[in-house]
Design a protein around this nucleic acid. Structure first.
Lengths: 246, 246
DNA sequence: CTCATTGTTGCTTATTATACAATATGATTG
DNA sequence: CAATCATATTGTATAATAAGCAACAATGAG
């Protein structure tokens, strides 16, 4: 169970590069990791040699390299759900006028693996690769309610509406399982409401979640039942499609 | 200039995982890398612990982990060209009926960073993250002709039309610079023709290439001038947009 | 032009990863 | 269903490696 230290350090650097907006310098890196400047330099140049980091020669800061984009394609290409869901995502967007998203569970969060943007000027879009918490997003709640994941230990607060009590969340999950859909009522992003439903594979096992996100001004409480009906319908159709695909 | 061996090995494993269709077993990995099974196991479990590899418990084979998708988002989000080009890609697709692609140079190849699919049943689409050679694709040729990249050393043959002679390629580049657009006439994929133009940033420096790909049956030699005109026009508009954006 | 800051490289030592072996885990076949 | 085989993981001594220190180089600021 022991881990390879220098590889672990390299991966930590990748995480760090991914979080940083305007790159990381060697000294910053050494400070953050708590290692020597020399070591930091060598680790980084190894990452750079393999395309996982790129050096901005102008200010000598390192950014994440393009190699990860190439790898990302390999991951997404292996997900049959992604290919199958595309037209349903489009349909969902067209029927509701809001951005549609597809997510799967990954590392205790909801990983957004595809999306169809709404043409509206004011829209709520999440790029492919976004990883959001499970307990306060519609797509995430579905993964929690219908998947065999364990409840997150710490329920982080994002807005006044975020459900942070484990008991309340457990009860909320029961409701979602009963209703068959989940709502995020400004629990993650203020002013944003989302609706999501589960997608099951040919074995009846949860494959992911699909849903829409929109500004609370358009996705009003009054419109929720109507929008939810659409999302449920398209979701059902996708699950059926998944059933026959294999 | 010495590299961190175990980090390098980890990154090689990621490359390997990315190339493999149905995962990699520990013994396979040990054989490929030329290391001990024990070492391979420890390297892989380190990758897995950080989300860069995922174990399929059914057959104990490892796949690329979802973490790279998350990192990929960080890379793409930092490219202003991607955001700016989106509507122009769409326009290009709508005017030509063919899939539109956007690429930047990365590690001596053309990295596809965005795409708009054609609704046609028969279409030629490349997913985001695709990395194609420079000397035999329209997007790649543009990067070669207008960027400050060095000519690839080995000009790999893909079809009978692939230009493999360095001198011929150099001459071809001069032509492309003169005409302002590049054509891939079944030089990479048989039955596929592509047209591409450069995109320049506010400094007049090459930022990337944009173009369309379609089946040779629709993208005929007769239609080339007309299609090229559209691609050139949209490309020019995007370059202008890039000029004013900063 | 000088100084300050940051990045890279050489070298020694302590740490770490490796190889080998043993054990555990799971698959396959009779 | 048991026994065997293949594959993965873990323990441990040793050899290799990466860390740290320090010197040097490179870059930018004043």
């Amino acid at each position: 169970m022991s881990e390879i230290q220098s590889l672990a350090r390299g991966l930590k650097i990748l995480d760090l590069l991914g979080r940083s907006q305007d790159g990381v310098s060697i000294t910053e890196l050494a400070d953050t990791l708590g290692v020597d400047k020399g070591s930091a330099s060598r680790l980084m140049s190894t990452l750079a040699r393999y395309g996982y980091a790129e050096k901005d020669e102008a200010n000598r800061r390192y950014h994440l390299g393009s190699q990860v984009v190439s790898l990302s394609r390999s991951v997404l290409a292996r997900l049959p759900l992604r290919e199958a869901a595309k037209p349903y995502l489009r349909e969902m967007m067209e029927h509701t006028g809001e951005c549609a998203h597809l997510a799967v569970p990954a590392q205790g969060r909801a990983l957004y693996i595809d999306q169809v943007e709404s043409p509206a000027t004011l829209r709520v879009n999440a790029q492919v690769g976004t990883m959001n918490p499970l307990h306060c997003t519609a797509l995430g709640k579905i993964l929690l309610a219908f998947g065999d994941l364990e409840l997150p230990l710490a329920l982080e607060t994002f807005t006044p509406h975020t459900i942070t009590d484990p008991e309340a969340l457990r009860h909320h999950m029961d409701e979602i399982r009963l209703l068959g859909y989940a709502v995020d009522d400004e629990e993650f992003d203020p002013g944003v409401r989302c609706i999501a439903v589960p997608v099951f594979d040919f074995r009846g096992k949860l494959a992911g979640s699909i849903g829409i996100s929109g500004p609370a001004t358009r996705v009003t409480h009054e419109r929720l039942p109507e929008l939810a009906a659409t999302v449920i319908e398209v979701g059902k159709a996708l699950s059926e499609r998944m059933t026959f695909s294999r």
